[in-house]
């Protein structure tokens, strides 16, 4: 598959990432729920949009606008979003009002804001992009499937720049339903991807693959497919979330497939667990490649060489949806 180059990122998360600060040293204080540090949205959203948009729409539009700003205002040719639960809080509000009112006299705003593709649509409306617009909802692999769509779209050569994002907001109702509760999180991460390198110090996504309940050796098979020997990996970024059952899956892979010299990093203690947390991981690793180092709070085990060029992102959600993304620095 043809690689995609990362032109810029825009990330709203529980860390101060909106200002492109990836030191990841925000004090989360061991909180069970990590909520996003939101910017002042005035100036990012039209006043009417600002008052009518739900929180997740503000998160999404804000992050997308920041990504475009960081790209020097370069406009995308297409918009793709991955989301697990999308506008879940507005959906709950709307469903509740249906029940309470006996399906009569329903307010329009929660209805408009309640569908899964609202974020991608509102980003397109804000940026006035009327071309390809798609939303992927595939549980814990939503963002990675959006990435895959992006790479395939760029490969078709019809589009040169694609804005792709991963977004989910915290829902207390959903959180209460979970039997095993990891540190919960939320965030909106957008990336402007291009089919050509932006210049020096570029970062490219060279492979993306998603798996559903894969066999134990799927990482070895994937690396073989990519002709990427494990010893060439300088860093592996893991979705460790603090739940023993989930983390045991990563531990088995660390012991079996990952080279002992590679740096190991984790991020869900920084952004919390949510279905599109992979977008946080991609932004973290991209900025690490640009800066030449991962921020200290993310490092589980330092690398032996200090070299940072090839990075593997490995995430899984409830041991069902697994994803692998290969990043390479220029």
């Amino acid at each position: 598959m043809m690689p995609a180059y990362i032109i810029s990122t825009g990330l709203i998360s529980p860390q101060r990432t909106f200002e492109n600060d990836f030191s990841c040293d925000a004090d989360t204080g061991g909180a069970p729920i990590l909520t996003a540090v939101e910017p002042d949205y005035r100036g990012l959203l039209h006043p009417v949009q600002l008052r009518r948009s739900s929180r997740i729409l503000k998160l999404g539009i804000g992050a997308a606008q920041r990504c475009i700003h960081n790209a020097g205002g370069r406009q995308p040719d297409a918009i793709i979003v991955g989301t697990g639960l999308a506008c879940v809080n507005d959906l709950e509000t709307f469903m509740k009002s249906i029940e309470e009112s006996g399906e009569q006299g329903l307010s329009a705003i929660p209805f408009i804001n309640s569908s899964h593709n609202t974020v991608a649509a509102q980003v397109a409306r804000t940026l006035q992009i009327q071309t390809y617009n798609n939303t992927h909802c595939h549980r814990g692999a939503s963002f990675e499937n959006a990435l895959l769509d992006t790479l395939m779209l760029l490969q078709e050569e019809e589009y040169k720049h694609v804005l792709v994002g991963g977004i989910d907001e915290f829902s207390m109702h959903y959180y209460r339903l979970l039997e095993e509760k990891p540190v919960a999180g939320e965030g909106a991460g957008f990336f402007l991807l291009s089919d050509t390198p932006p210049g020096n110090n570029s970062v490219k996504i060279s492979a993306v693959k998603t798996f559903y309940r894969p066999p134990e050796d799927f990482i070895a098979r994937f690396l073989e497919e990519q002709q990427l020997p494990a010893h060439q990996l300088d860093a592996v970024v893991l979705g460790i979330n603090g739940l023993p059952a989930d983390d045991a899956v990563y531990r088995r892979q660390i012991d079996t497939f990952f080279p002992p010299h590679a740096l190991l990093a984790a991020y869900k203690h920084l952004c919390g667990e949510y279905r599109t947390a992979g977008a946080f991981a991609l932004a973290l690793a991209t900025h690490a490649l640009w800066a030449g180092a991962f921020p200290a709070p993310s490092v589980l085990r330092p690398g032996a060489s200090g070299k940072l060029q090839k990075v593997l992102l490995y995430n899984h959600y409830q041991n069902c949806n697994h994803s692998l993304v290969v990043l390479e620095g220029g």
Binding site: R52, G105, L106
Partner: peptide, 17 residues
């Protein structure tokens, strides 16, 4: 107030409710 057609729907609902 610079309202629009979606706001008009909400105002009609307000009168009813």
């Amino acid at each position: 107030l610079g309202l629009d057609s979606i706001d008009a729907l909400e105002l009609i609902l307000l009168l009813e409710k």
